[in-house]
Simulated assay, not measured.
Amino acid sequence: MSVEIALTPQNPTHAGLSGRLVCFPHAGGAAERFHDWISGFAPVLDVRAVTLPGRGRLMDQSPVESWPDLIESIVTRLQPLADRPFAIFGHSFGARLAYEVTRALADDEQAPNLLIVAGPAPQMAQRDRKISGLPRPAFLAEIEAINGTPPEVLANTDLMDRMLPALRADFALLETYEADRASKHSPLPCPILAVGSDNDPQVPFHSILGWRHRTRSRFECRLFAGDHFFPFTNPDFADTLFDYVDDALNEHTKDLHRAG
């Protein structure tokens, strides 16, 4: 099965950059969520954002409910971007997807130099309640209750009608994710920075700290003020992330130069 994955195009001014950041959005999200980062981090970092079928510019395509198909297609698109030091960031559902993509890249010896995750560790991700197949009113009520979609999106009926298939597909993926198997995964070779907020009941601190078991390299954990959408609502987060990623990728570049 072939799945089309869209990545934000490279800005020509990024041609000489030393670092790259690839971003995965929350359930139902698209690359537009990272517009401010893409423009704000230039020209120091080449920021790319992933859009999956069924959302954003790919809204007319059918969403994907198969982990293997989705991961394989994303990895195929990302492999050419591993030509320089790069980091991967994932938020909420995107954190799970970023982790699985990083695992696949690591199997091909193309792991990113840093994985940043804003969501629960994969071995703690099992959803007891299945909501993806609920009728529309019940499904939207569940989405609103778990604070998993921006309020302004939920209030837009026309947009929600178009987004529902993608949202259902993403939650179906989360519901079929095998957390027990994830607990037995080999630790990743790259460092992990796990980030969370102080007011997100869906992602408690212990589920963020659980990422320490998913790497054999350096692990760090940082908390920020905000709710589930703190990466986009906390005014300090983007600058903090930028500084962390820039330092990490620059250090890797220096190591390569010393080795050469």
Rank of each mutant, 00 (worst) to 15 (best):
F230W: 08
K184E: 14
F93H: 07
F139P: 12
T13R: 15
S186M: 08
F24T: 03
T13M: 08
A121L: 00
W37S: 00
D198P: 03
D158L: 13
Y99K: 11
R48N: 10
F229T: 11
P112H: 04
E72D: 12
A111L: 04
F89Q: 08
C23I: 00
T149H: 09
N147R: 11
G19R: 00
F205M: 08
S186L: 13
F230A: 03
A194G: 09
R57H: 07
G196L: 01
F205Y: 07
D198G: 02
T176A: 05
P235N: 07
R20N: 12
P231G: 11
S62H: 12
F171T: 01
G260K: 08
H91Y: 13
A15Y: 06
H26N: 05
N250E: 13
D198K: 08
V117F: 01
L78K: 09
A125Y: 03
G260V: 03
D158R: 13
P235H: 09
D200R: 08
D180C: 09
K130R: 14
G19C: 02
R181V: 03
Q61M: 14
D36Y: 10
Q61K: 13
D180H: 02
T253W: 14
H213G: 12
E109A: 14
H228G: 10
E178D: 15
L105F: 07
C221D: 05
L78I: 04
E100C: 07
I192Q: 04
V245K: 06
F230S: 03
L167M: 06
A166S: 13
L188M: 04
A238E: 10
L159V: 09
T102S: 08
H185E: 12
L223W: 10
A30H: 11
P12F: 09
L17D: 13
A194W: 01
Q126F: 06
E72N: 14
E142L: 02
I71K: 14
F89G: 13
F86V: 03
L7Q: 08
A141Q: 15
G148H: 00
D108N: 12
H206V: 11
H35F: 02
A172S: 10
F229G: 12
E144C: 11
P12W: 07
L105A: 06
I131H: 09
Y244T: 15
T215V: 14
H26E: 03
A27E: 05
L249S: 13
L209D: 13
I74D: 10
D161L: 05
M1L: 14
N113H: 15
A259I: 06
E4H: 15
S207A: 11
A172V: 00
H257D: 10
T8F: 05
F232M: 15
G54R: 01
R48E: 01
A6T: 01
S132Q: 01
L154Q: 07
R96I: 11
P122F: 02
I88T: 07
A172K: 07
F86S: 02
P120L: 01
T8E: 09
K254S: 13
A15P: 05
L7S: 06
R77M: 08
A125F: 05
I88A: 10
P189H: 06
G28P: 11
A179W: 03
G94C: 03
S2G: 05
R55G: 09
A238P: 06
T76N: 10
W211V: 03
S66V: 05
H185G: 03
R33G: 07
E220A: 11
A87E: 00
P204Q: 12
V47F: 06
Y99N: 07
R258A: 14
N113R: 06
A155E: 14
T215P: 09
E152T: 13
